[in-house]
């Protein structure tokens, strides 16, 4: 009996069930369409373009991996590529250590239980992030200007004038200086993310640790830090992707030739010069696409290392 009844019910509902789940498609469509048109298609087309070479009339022909061979073996290209990649790694390392370190410290300070005016600090520290890069670049160039900047004047006022140097113009210091300007601008982002994670930790845990005899340092090291590790992971990967796509600040401060002697040249500015050309250098969209694809591969590698090497080992805690 029950079998028959069940079959009957099934028979009645089969057409209902097997119908295509239209609502899923409807809900997926906006994101799918937008990502396909503005992200996936350009990405795939860039990779396609990187397999072509153009001649002087602008006509293109297929060259396979020729552009990549040139990029990695021709000294005129590979020198610049490795230099840009190396600088980019330094740029990233400075952000990881300084930006995320300070971001973590500020978040800890902001989450102090008896802090007054916390929201004011939070807003102020986050402000530079919302400013245009052009303004940031302009302000810092003025501050550090050896002729009329306030940095040399201030240093001289306290008797440390000899410490000042044209930091943005020296090969040895330009990259670090530009990196620190970028750190100053974006320190608000890790701060906010980590702060949000920190205030999510229930007080009971920390109270329990304190009762067990843990000092502030042990509480931080053994309780809070493990609990915010997933957030630190997210912050790291965001920093990585943002740094290897960076371009605007260097362009605003040092121009596309990223001087002196390409010491501030990162993959973004190298790509710009290659794709759009510079002064008498004629731009090459195909070679530019090859550089862009190389950037994509670098970023992809980094993200994969993170996903498989770090993300999977992280333990998540929910309260």
């Amino acid at each position: 009996m029950s079998d028959i009844a069940a079959t009957n019910v099934q028979a009645g509902s089969v057409p209902e069930r097997s119908r295509f789940p239209l609502h899923i498609a409807v809900f997926l469509a906006p994101a799918l369409i937008i990502y396909t048109i503005f992200s996936i298609y350009p990405l795939v087309d860039t990779i396609r373009l990187s397999l072509y070479a153009g001649d002087e009339t602008g006509a293109r022909h297929f060259v396979g991996l020729g552009n990549f061979v040139t990029l990695l073996t021709d000294p005129a290209w590979s020198g610049q590529f490795w230099n840009a990649l190396g600088n980019n790694l330094i740029f990233f390392a400075i952000h990881m250590v300084v930006q995320n370190g300070i971001g973590l410290g500020l978040a800890m300070l902001l989450s102090l239980p008896r802090l007054t005016g916390g929201s004011i600090y939070r807003t102020l520290l986050f402000l530079p992030t919302m400013l245009s890069v052009v303004i940031i670049g302009f302000i810092w160039q003025l501050i550090l200007n050896p002729l009329w900047g306030i940095a040399p004047t201030l240093l001289k006022a306290v008797g440390l004038g000899s410490l000042f140097g044209p930091w943005l113009g020296q090969e040895s210091t330009a990259l670090v200086t530009v990196s620190l300007i970028s750190v100053w601008q974006f320190v608000g982002i890790p701060m906010m993310l980590i702060y949000a994670a920190l205030i999510n930790i229930p007080d009971d845990l920390m109270d329990a640790a304190t009762v067990d005899g843990a000092g502030p340092f042990s509480v931080f090291w053994f309780v809070r830090l493990p609990l915010i590790l997933p957030t630190l992971g997210v912050v790291s990967i965001l920093t990585f992707v943002a740094n290897f796509n960076a371009f605007d600040l260097i362009y605003a401060v040092k121009g596309a030739l990223a001087g002196p002697n390409f010491s501030t040249d990162i993959l973004g500015t190298f790509f710009y010069r290659t794709f759009f050309g510079y002064q008498l250098q004629v731009g090459s969209p195909t070679m530019g696409a090859a550089v862009a694809t190389a950037m994509l591969i670098v970023i992809l590698l980094g993200v994969l290392i993170y996903l498989f090497g770090v993300q999977r080992r992280l333990q998540r805690h929910t309260f």
Binding site: W77, G259, P260, N261, L280
Partner: peptide, 28 residues
């Protein structure tokens, strides 16, 4: 002297001259 024909290749001569002239003045 870098404008006619000589800046057609890679590395670009004009960019190179900018680079080395600045470096000569910087003492590097």
């Amino acid at each position: 002297n870098s404008y006619q024909i000589l800046s057609r290749g890679t590395p670009n001569l004009e960019n190179e001259l900018w680079n080395v002239s600045a470096q000569v003045l910087n003492g590097t």
